[in-house]
């Protein structure tokens, strides 16, 4: 299954606005996407509660996995998203 490792760039970690943006993007892929830490059980990346409960902090490494058609492209776009400081962007 395609998999990527990425460091959380958002200065506040993966909660609030960054978490909401990430979950919306994950839902937008239409695929089963999971996010988790190395060696721990991953959570459903399309669940805001799951992603928030993960509690990923700024600078922490997370592993994304996806399955299905276009999984590689979907993961690339999600990696790009997590590599930006989403909280610093106005919107």
């Amino acid at each position: 299954m395609p998999q990527r490792t990425v460091t959380i760039a958002s200065s506040v970690g993966l909660h609030a606005r960054p978490a909401a943006l990430f979950v919306e993007a994950a839902q937008g892929t239409g695929l089963d996407v999971e996010i988790g830490r190395a060696g721990e059980e991953a959570v459903d990346a399309t669940s805001i509660l799951g992603v928030m409960a993960l509690g990923a902090k700024h600078g922490e490494e997370v592993i994304l996995t996806a399955d299905g058609d276009g999984a590689d492209a979907a993961l690339e776009s999600l990696v790009a998203l997590l590599s930006r400081d989403l909280d610093a962007e106005e919107g």
Partner: peptide
């Protein structure tokens, strides 16, 4: 909007 997203959460 963020609260609405929680209400739509599959996990809940």
């Amino acid at each position: 909007k963020a609260t609405a997203m929680i209400a739509r959460d599959k996990g809940l």
